[in-house]
Nucleic acid binder design. Sequence first.
RNA 1: GUCCCCAUCGUCUAGAGGCCUAGGACAUCGCCCUUUCAAGGCGGCAACACGGGUUCGAUUCCCGUUGGGGACGCCA
Length: 465
Amino acid sequence: MPVVTRFAPSPTGSLHLGSARTALFNWLFARHHQGTFLLRIEDTDRERSTEESIQAIFKGLQWLGLDWDGEVIFQFSRANLHAAAARRLVEEGKAYYCYATPEELESMRAEAKKKAQPPRYNGLWRDRDPASAPAGVSPVIRLKVPQQGATQVLDLVQGSVTVNNAQLDDMVLLRSDGTPTYMLSVVVDDHDAGITHVIRGDDHLTNTFRQLQLYNALGWTAPRFAHIPLIHGADGAKLSKRHGAVDIGSYRDLGYLPEAMNNYLLRLGWGHGDDEIIPRDQAIAWFDIDHVGQAPARFDRARLDHLNAHYMRLLPDDALCEQLAAFLPSALDATQRRRLDRALPSLKQRAKTLVDLAENASPFLQDAPLSYSQEAQEVLRLSGAPLEQAFAFLETAEWAPEALEAGLRQVAEQGGEAFGKIASPLRWALTGCRVSPGIFEVLEILGRAESLQRVRTALAFQERK
RNA sequence: GUCCCCAUCGUCUAGAGGCCUAGGACAUCGCCCUUUCAAGGCGGCAACACGGGUUCGAUUCCCGUUGGGGACGCCA
């Protein structure tokens, strides 16, 4: 049977990292099996669902390169089908109308808690004659679940998990306003879409028992379930807003490449021997549910950084430049473009994110005179003879890398200084930074005129003797 | 409170009874390279939560303890 998976986020916020990973796993599983990957927006909560969130989900998935098959399914548009299923169950005596008020429910839960039982509905209307219904109260429809026995899930990740039915109450299928609840909608939609594998977060594991009971009542075969452990923050608690940036869009803005994000998310909770760098094609070939771990994983930014640095180095310069554009203060003119092209191979060697890269590129995008930082000014003030000697040499030097190197080394030697004594102030003068690509490279990229101009203005900061 | 799940270096993980004096990666520390910072190379530190079983033999199987997490809505 061909595999059909789905990603079913609710549009009540941005695309969370945990959700993104769930989407990735579903996508990989489907692609691995040459199956189908569907996207369903679970917008049955009319209060909290927003268009903005829907767009964030689309954008996030597109950025990650997780393409879905067919049209997006909007769950709310299928509400009448869900309601019909609920009414069918009432007709078949498998569900019933319940007129309990919020106050009554409240006291039932308090009561249960007092008796050291899970807070739940006590079945007040389960066998009560609907004729005794209070006037003017619109009822909900509840599923009549078995009170004896147990329900078992054979989870592809968690194994066999069983819960006593006494633990579960008669869940609401249809709200008093006639709209379906999540439990009903998911089951009907997954069934109608022919979903074969439900891969979702561990936090849904306990919902699965209820959904299984629903499949049962409806007379449908349930799909296979795979509950993947949640992603935790550094403190071990479920990753949430208090841990900082948790939505995929933030990481794009922080300068991470989708390739890195995918690789990182993939390795969070799944492994393939000693392999760490796993590009998309390899991931599709290798991905399986068997190797999904059972323990939650903590989000580790340093690891993401490392992968990002790796993928940036791997990216061809023109593609990297394209990615970088969004992080640059303005569009590049011809000169800037030429310098950046020359500097990029070296710059990308020393950046963890596109933000770093943009920052490091900055000296090459400016024209003399540079505006030097406090720190730069201080260094230049004390730069002394080495910088003067370097300038004197550069003024008449042949502007070729080998010649520049040989000449500057000679200058250092003549002055009886280590080469660093010259290179350091020269670097500050040329770039305004402590760190940069190799000094000869910088000279060559900037060219004679620009380099001399920069050093000349830098010299002006020198302490008067 | 009730139920469910989880447990290998700081972190992500390999490991499906002997291959384990537990492997890799990130982080960290040191050395090399070196004009800076990276990258790269080499090396160091660092883990099977604890207690019982089962077995000739447990990181691997079972039970318990401890610790962590999750779920208990007319939210999804």
